[in-house]
Design a protein around this nucleic acid. Structure first.
Lengths: 360, 360
DNA sequence: CTGTTAGCGCTTTCAG
DNA sequence: CTGAAAGCGCTAACAG
């Protein structure tokens, strides 16, 4: 399509490490001013420049000013790569996320980024694209990058594997993952509590035929949410009715809801894995001539930005923390751990029900 | 709120570089197997190990197998920091994005990540949070990180400053930014073309009182889209009517549309900066009792995932490339440039009008 | 086919 | 208060 051919790069999988041999035709690093250049021009030792750079005590004010002005003149920028090698600290955090483009993870990431940036850390971001293999490859590479810590969101790796990968890292925080305690700090949502809220809300309204529009992607949240639906229904005295549960992958909330409603037309209440699925469900109801909320009530999860703008506006389960706050919390926990201070190692977050038009 | 106190870190702004002095109480790097360890155990020189690692020719099969097995045994992972220092290549790309959580940028980012990962590059991601100061700080830090290239999306820095920052980088691609040619490759949208499509579509429908719901955030796209609206209206023979244009920042598309409709009730067609704004406009129409599209037609930009799920489904301007494709294109251009092969240095992308219910 | 030497640009450590 | 020497873990450039 595009007039671009790429440098040939090869991935060698026989290696214990995933190693990519990049093209040789790479332009060399630009010539850059080094600390030694500054030292020479300022007529002091490299160490003096280094001390000024790191704001160490025991430097006379005159020398300091002098060195600083030379740094200015030369447009000196310290080389963090060299610095990292010498100090065994990279000031980088590796983040693994199942999907960058999801509204949910994007918002969480934003909160984490803010906290990390404010504390001098940079983010190395990788998208696992909902693949276990890639999660493993990414975590391995983070080890090679010698990141100071990693954050994992909604991992697909099973508990034992994830645990062993995280143990190899300097510090780790897992958000909505299953990990053995000790391997990483952990932020998780209380899925049973939230699902109970939703189910109770629909039942108290006199609805009796609830359906669940789930997601198939393999993660703690998808599993727990589905399991909780069954449990909550049972707790309310209903036999689990698998006919009224249907799951599919991202993007097909609309189709799934539509098939579900066609298969089980008696359904009068739908709980959807997230707000995007719920939006699809609203559309499906509309097309099938089912009025919302009169015929079918719809509840989503996450309270995304558009939830209150939909018509009817969406009743949804909102986390007690905003999504950026969740990211920020996880980031703060990671920083604590990097600093060697142990913190509470498991945060459990609740949802609250935001009642709007789709399920009053 | 949370039982967490942070390691005290300070940002010193008097320095020419933004330098953060992190806490001293940082846990040291885990003891790790080095290349020298492997060499010793395998009873070969470091260079032999290095050659095996890099898949160089001129190694006997036996030695290679032997070294590989020792690497396995020891669980060796090469240190990319050291490698970067020695080779002056980091295999990292710095990305500056105005907002991670926006559906638009998230999708673009995802495409870029995929291409970069496939070619062995990692992403250093920073959120400029729509701040010029932060953009500058980020670009400075990318220089210190010695990234192999940078990608900038919808920068806020004015053309001349952005140009000078990008010139200092090894390679750069700017997406929807104004940059002097040569400083960076560039992918931009043709705003005049797209706005003309939208305006023509509404006018041919007999509508005469068009309004524009804009965004105030300072970027090429916001400026161009607004300017194009005026120009397109003039070209169609209407005097520019500033009364029918209103802009606000992110999140308040609903409010802006509402105020606009109250101020200029004769409006029968709205063009909105993006689909989220358009969703707000739909809601505003609903609340004001204006039927869409009968009383007011609404057009958005981007064709986000939810656009066709809204009721009425949204007529919108979709780029000829999907958002991930835009990211992927930009990433490929960057890789070409890193490889030293010059490519076309400006891509101009068109929009097409996706006609749905909100403006048939 | 394999080894030796000398850095990459910074910081740690020890002297003065 | 400042400097000299050694090294972080790897690779480039020569030898052999």
């Amino acid at each position: 399509m595009l007039p671009l051919t790429l440098a040939v790069t090869q991935v060698h999988n026989k290696y214990p490490i995933r190693y990519i041999f990049a093209s040789k035709f790479v332009s060399r690093q630009k010539e850059r001013v080094t600390l030694a250049d500054v030292a020479q021009k300022a007529d002091v030792s490299a160490m003096t420049v280094s001390r000024v750079l790191n704001n160490k005590d025991g430097i006379s004010e005159t020398t300091r000013e002098h060195v600083l002005s030379i740094m200015q003149d030369l447009g000196y920028r310290p080389n963090r790569v060299a610095r990292s090698l010498a100090t065994a600290q990279t000031l980088k955090i590796g983040i693994v996320i199942p999907s960058i483009s999801s509204a949910y993870f994007g918002a969480v990431l934003e909160g984490a980024e803010r906290v990390l940036w404010d504390n001098g850390y940079h983010i190395l971001l990788c998208n696992s694209a909902n693949s276990k293999k890639r999660e493993q490859a990414i975590l391995d590479l983070f080890e090679e990058d010698r990141v100071d810590g990693v954050m994992v969101f909604s991992a697909h790796l099973p508990c034992d594997q994830l645990t062993s990968y995280l143990k190899k890292q300097r510090a780790a925080v897992a958000v909505n993952c299953e990990v053995e305690p000790g391997a990483a700090e952990c932020v998780v949502t209380n899925e049973m509590q939230s699902m109970s809220l939703a189910v109770a809300h629909l039942l108290k309204d006199g609805r009796r035929h609830l359906g669940y529009v789930g997601q198939t992607i393999n993660s703690r949240t998808t599993r727990e949410r589905q399991r909780s639906f069954v449990l909550a229904m049972q707790a309310a005295g209903f036999a689990p009715d698998l006919e009224r549960m249907m799951a599919s992958d991202r993007g097909s909330g609309y189709l799934t809801a539509r098939r579900l409603l066609e298969k089980a037309p008696e359904i009068d209440g739908l709980i959807c894995f997230n707000d995007e699925f719920a939006a699809g469900a609203l559309r499906a109801c509309y097309e099938l001539g089912r009025r919302v909320p009169d015929d079918v009530a719809v509840i989503g999860y996450d309270d995304i930005f558009l939830a209150e703008l939909l018509t009817p506006s969406l009743t949804t389960l909102r986390l007690e923390l905003t999504k950026p706050e969740v990211g920020a919390l996880a980031a703060r926990m990671l920083l604590e751990r990097i600093a060697g201070r142990p913190t509470q190692d498991r945060f459990m977050l609740k949802h609250e029900l935001i009642v709007r038009e789709s399920a009053p």
